[in-house]
Nucleic acid binder design. Structure first.
Lengths: 143, 143
DNA sequence: TGGCCATACTTGCGTCCTCAAGCTTTGTCC
DNA sequence: GGACAAAGCTTGAGGACGCAAGTATGGCCA
């Protein structure tokens, strides 16, 4: 299956670059990005987990790292005491912007090196179909 | 990036199925498959590592598991005493055949459910381009 | 109000994998 | 032939993640 190898090759590259230049995992990056676009830059942990395809325990531990680094803070929910929001800090937002500069370049060069614009589009359409319902897979950071 | 989510979704599914029904990881499966098609059903560990995109230490430990299970044996190389072949056993070959029955069905249903034949083909061509040089990404087991 | 299941989250434990360091064997270059 | 780098492999330490179990809160229904 080409998909398996294709993905492994590409993410390995992105992950290595992100980690070398910004000390962030791909999942770290995806979480920061998700938070940056969420209303008030906060999300419930459950929703984050679904967003980046981790389990809840995975999210708990990933956020522990981001909290230690000061990129994310815990925030209680006034209406439901079970939930603990993950709240993006200004520092976290800054780090995301820095990281995005080189990360987007990485992505562009990894893909653009191998595909034409039209091909990219059909790829996106095809792969998008794997993800039945959920949209929101582009790369921009709000603001 | 659709590719990231597409891959995570699909492999998670395949891996879960493989492990539930045959107690094999995707990587276990890929290694057995690679060995089944190699000349004399054996490969150097270095080459295996490159084939399934793991590090050498990753392969060492993965093979430890397969050796314990009796699917693979260590075999010395007469001309270069540094290399230790991974040699597929008859038991390993049998297990691969069993696993492939349901695994191929999984793959087919996961993909065929979402793509037409023509789409599959273009997907394959596009993704194949990510893997510059190496071919050999189909699924058949020899013999 | 009290019982009971569902939801949100955390924690303990195990697995898979990587990185860095180390060992042995091989090839090369003087 | 001997030094020395390179190749093949293993090992120790640690990271990321899943699963299952545990805690706390919320919603529901009698």
């Amino acid at each position: 299956m080409a998909l398996l190898r294709a993905h492994a090759t590409l993410t390995r590259q992105m992950d290595a670059n992100l980690q070398a230049e910004h000390e962030l995992t791909i999942n770290d990056y995806e979480v920061l990005l998700a938070l940056a676009r969420a209303p008030e830059r906060r999300m419930r942990r459950v929703d984050l987990a679904e967003r980046v395809l981790l389990t809840q325990s995975g999210i708990t531990r990933l956020l522990q790292g981001l909290e230690r680094a000061g990129f994310v803070e815990r925030a209680d929910c006034p209406t439901d005491r079970r939930v603990v929001y993950a709240q993006l800090t200004d520092g976290g937002y800054e780090r995301l912007r820095e990281a995005s500069r080189t990360h987007l370049d990485d992505i562009r060069s990894l893909f653009a090196a191998r595909f034409s614009g039209g091909e990219l589009e059909s790829l996106d359409v095809l792969l998008g179909r794997v993800l039945e319902g959920d949209s929101d897979t582009d790369c921009a950071i709000p603001d």
